[in-house]
């Protein structure tokens, strides 16, 4: 099958990351737990975007669009956390 050889390692890496985040959720990480699970999720999303969606091959404009979406989401999350964190 074309591409299977290239994509299979990515798939395995994704499953490994899933195992990581599952395992980490049983560790007593306290406040770091959401940080770890978010970081793992970001890594997985990057793998999917980079290899499955082939954003690394497509034009800069497309990458910019996807990045803008993620970035704006981060802004929404961070800025709306300012109020509850300091309330």
């Amino acid at each position: 099958m074309p591409g299977l050889r290239a994509l299979l390692p990515v798939y395995v890496a994704l499953l490994a990351l899933l195992a990581t985040t599952l395992g980490a959720s049983y560790l007593p990480l306290g406040g770091w737990s959401p940080v770890v699970s978010t970081a793992v999720a970001l890594a997985k999303a990057a793998l999917i975007a980079g290899f499955f969606m082939e954003l690394r091959l497509e034009g800069a404009a497309l990458r910019l669009a996807v990045f803008a979406g993620l970035f704006m989401c981060a802004i929404l999350l961070v800025m709306s956390s300012v109020d509850p964190l300091t309330r």
Binding site: G59, A61, A65, V66, A68, G69, L70, M72
Partner: peptide, 16 residues
């Protein structure tokens, strides 16, 4: 492709 990329960014913010 670019239009689709923007649409996906927009969809992602829906879940945002």
């Amino acid at each position: 492709l670019f239009g689709m990329g923007i649409f996906l960014a927009s969809e992602f913010l829906l879940f945002g």
